[in-house]
Design a protein around this nucleic acid. Structure first.
Lengths: 229, 229
DNA sequence: AGCAGTCCGACAGGTTCCCGACAGCTTTCG
DNA sequence: CGAAAGCTGTCGGGAACCTGTCGGACTGCT
């Protein structure tokens, strides 16, 4: 999967590119609209992450020129919190999407995956994560433990999704914090403990009394997996 | 594998470089940000260990300039315990990692290996160590003796990993102490005996009554290997 | 027998983890 | 628009767990 990231702030562009590479994608970055258009022609990305606040040609301009050159590559926009959210909303047609800065990297990756799935055509598949008796439908946002439907808050949902995606690898609290919370979040990492605690209560309310689904690996972190051995 | 170590404290930089060379890597050290940038250009490391507390250009500055010059080399950061804890948030995000000083050299090497494995692309493999009937999965942290799943404390886990990695070489108590405990640890070396003792109990509880997995080589140290003769 | 090396029980201090209570903020609803 | 409901993060107490020290018993070698 080939990703072009366009942002005039190099740390942000690199952050996105690095995470994408970590997931096994090819990623290149551009720091201006001109460079973006040039790279789009050479690199032929499957998807583009595009900041709207660019010096020179802005994000909309880049999009227009991309479309005029015949590319139907899907685009996910980045915007500042108080910026042009309304105008963007009108543009998110055809499987495109947008995200407000500062964002959480896991959420960006999730949206990229969704847009790619949608743009693959009418025969796109549901994305359902399963671990043990737990299932999470990323389209409907339905989370079930066995038959029981759970009601999760947004943060709980994101933490659970991250753990399910990484299962059965143990994730440290720092990794969870860094991937699920917005970049620049200054909180202490015991917020992770707290969300885990709240998640566990909801999971346990909903089912069997066997080994807990979210296990603590003392001194290392948390992992979600079926009890074994 | 090529490693660049950046730390203004020469003994620390040398310690890391020495251990890396002992593992068969090429390693060079830099004691300032400027030197680090120069070396990065000449030496083309595959991975960088970077202290955040540098005189002159600090660690973040070095990282920024590295990235700006187009290098996507992965980085493992070193930080003081109480120093930049808040700014550290975000460092595990792109697959990079960080470690708090004072650290244990084996833990640093383990993290370097992990980061390298991940950044190698989509085809990364689980890292599973095996000796005799014992297996250790470094991603899931699962340790098994035969079928039986063991529950190890962090120290026990690190000592066992060290012995398994070095198997079938005999390691002295001093070597175990120097690699698995933080540098500067002032304890007596019989802590090693104690951890070995605790490990043996957990291993023996879990299986056969044949020759012990962790053998004592009187006067030299310990070794883990399959019984033979 | 004597000695150096090793093993490991018991204990105390320190660390990590869990989670109740609460307050600020955002979203929803009337 | 204001109120109510819901969400999120901070604080802190308490429990569980981990680790190193001490010291006495034990082992293997000479």
């Amino acid at each position: 999967m080939r990703l072009l990231v366009v942002d005039d702030d190099p740390p942000i562009a690199d952050l996105v590119a690095t995470v994408a590479r970590y997931e096994g994608w090819d990623a290149v970055t551009a720091n201006s609209g001109e460079q973006a258009l040039r790279l789009a022609g050479e690199f032929h990305p499957d998807i583009v992450v595009l900041d709207l606040m660019l010096p020179g040609v802005d994000g909309f301009g880049v999009l227009d020129r991309l479309r005029r050159s015949g590319t139907m590559v899907p685009v996910v926009f980045l915007t500042a919190r108080d910026g042009v959210a309304d105008r963007v909303a009108g543009l998110t047609r055809g499987g495109d999407d947008y995200l407000v800065k500062p964002f959480a990297v896991e959420e960006l990756m999730a949206r990229l995956r969704t847009v790619l799935r949608r743009s693959a055509g009418p025969n796109f598949q549901r994305s359902v994560l399963r671990v043990g008796g737990l299932s999470m439908d990323e389209d409907t946002h339905e989370v079930r433990h066995g038959e029981k439907l759970l009601t999760l808050t947004p943060t709980e949902y994101e933490v659970l999704r991250f753990l399910m995606r990484k299962s059965p690898t143990v994730m440290t609290k720092a990794q969870i914090l860094d991937h699920v919370w917005e970049y620049g979040f200054g909180g202490r990492s015991n917020v992770v403990e707290l969300v885990i605690s709240r998640l566990r209560r909801k999971l346990d309310d909903a089912g069997d009394t066997g080994a807990p689904l979210i296990q603590t690996v003392r001194g290392f972190g948390y992992v979600i997996r079926q009890a074994s051995g």
